[in-house]
Design a protein around this nucleic acid. Structure first.
Lengths: 154, 154
DNA sequence: GACAGGGTATCAAGAGCTTGATGTGACGCA
DNA sequence: TGCGTCACATCAAGCTCTTGATACCCTGTC
């Protein structure tokens, strides 16, 4: 509560982690009610914005390995929510597209996520909501530039 | 639809997730150099601030289940970094404490995390760093109050 | 003193993701 | 034209965390 224990628990790194966990705990059960997990929603949402993505591109966007994407894509195809199409140049690569029913399911799940985001914006206020986004973006872009200290075993 | 920049990728929920992933990608390799994973560090750091925590309390603080804590505690005991002590009232409960060498290892890992946090604060500026912390905390406290929409199948 | 209730610890089974390694097809360059 | 390089996809093994279920101990109530 005070700033005495700010030494560790109050750092941005720690607070950011807790915020993400709280977000996960809120959205996962809500999404499961419409039949998708958080990972599946991430795939659907990205395909909704950028149709024709490949598995590898999807992996980079969602921050996981390409191997983790394969089972997700398999499930979604099995349920008829997305489909593979041959890439015009690479015979080996498959473009992924939402089907019509996939678009409907994505819209249903997206409505929930929009509702959650609206709740956050209402809690923070419009201006601070925007600032939070800006600050987070600056954190994201600044992190790759960090080099760990030279193992100061001292 | 109405919010051009709210197009999924710009929402706080999505940005927050990417920020946490970027943070994870930065800190995990750095911590591994001193021999601990992110989860192990979380246990050590919490025990450093609040000695005598039980496994269940530790689980709540780090946001995982008690079952996930057990293997972590086992590893740390095996390496001599922490130790169990009998709880004064409950024979069944074990308090966890850092050993002397555990304190040293925690300090080494913590130096890295402090360095990372300092990098973020330098990138953002002192005032905005503080504000980011405040905004994240408000997100954390506001999230449990969210109730999902009543599955409006439209 | 007996009993229900809450909290802790632990076992078992399952899902999800990661690292490691392999095969294939497209592109740049001599 | 032939070769080296790179990106995509996929198989296999291992680790970590999760959900589900069980047993134990303390505390409050009758």
């Amino acid at each position: 509560m005070t700033f005495d224990d700010a030494e560790i628990l109050g750092r941005v790194a720690s607070t950011l982690r807790r915020a993400d966990l709280a977000l996960l705990a809120a959205k996962e059960p809500a999404l499961r009610k419409v039949g998708v997990s958080g990972s599946l929603y991430a795939v659907l949402a990205n395909l909704g914005v950028k149709p024709g993505l490949t598995g590898a591109e999807l992996a980079r966007l969602t921050g996981v390995t390409p191997q983790a994407i394969a089972p997700l894509v398999g499930k979604l195809i099995e349920r008829g929510l997305i489909e593979r199409r041959a890439h015009p140049r690479h015979a080996n690569i498959q473009e992924l597209h939402l089907t019509e029913s996939g678009r409907r399911e994505t819209a249903r799940a997206d409505r929930i996520m929009l509702h959650l985001d609206t709740h956050i914006r209402d809690s923070l206020g419009d201006q601070e909501y925007r600032q939070l986004r800006v600050l987070l973006d600056r954190v994201i872009t600044s992190l790759p530039g960090w080099v760990p200290p030279p193992d100061g075993s001292s």
